[in-house]
């Protein structure tokens, strides 16, 4: 993929994540901070399907943005054909792994397996 396209994805994921993370943080402030982190309240959040979808979107957006950011930083430090491929594929694998692990939590909790 062209770097210009990757940067557009980087900026797009950033803007979308800012909006959704703001909602995610505001949910912590709808009641007391400590109260919002109680087991029952967190479980209720996961079981509310629109909120679970939002969490999944945040997970994907931040994983794509975060690991692409890491890739950019690592490519600024050193260059080379093999190194660049290793960094790009390494970040891609880590990103997929993190999305899979986070999705597992969201799906299992939403389906009442917690």
């Amino acid at each position: 993929m062209r770097e210009s396209t990757i940067m557009k994805i980087h900026y797009g994921t950033a803007l979308a994540a800012v909006a959704l993370v703001a909602v995610h943080i505001l949910m912590r402030l709808t009641m007391g901070y400590a109260e919002s982190l109680e087991y029952e309240n967190v479980l209720a959040n996961y079981k509310f399907v629109p909120y679970a979808i939002m969490l999944e979107l945040i997970l994907v957006l931040l994983a794509v943005h975060g690991f692409n950011g890491l890739r950019v930083i690592l490519l600024e430090l050193k260059q080379g054909r093999l190194y660049e491929k290793a960094v790009s594929y390494g970040c891609l694998v880590a990103m997929i792994g993190l999305i899979a692990y986070g999705s597992r939590t969201i799906i299992m909790t939403n389906m009442g397996m917690a």
Partner: peptide, 13 residues
């Protein structure tokens, strides 16, 4: 922090 947060929230399981 994001990686830690994903691990942290998996404790709900």
């Amino acid at each position: 922090y994001f990686i830690g947060h994903i691990y942290e929230t998996s404790n709900i399981l």
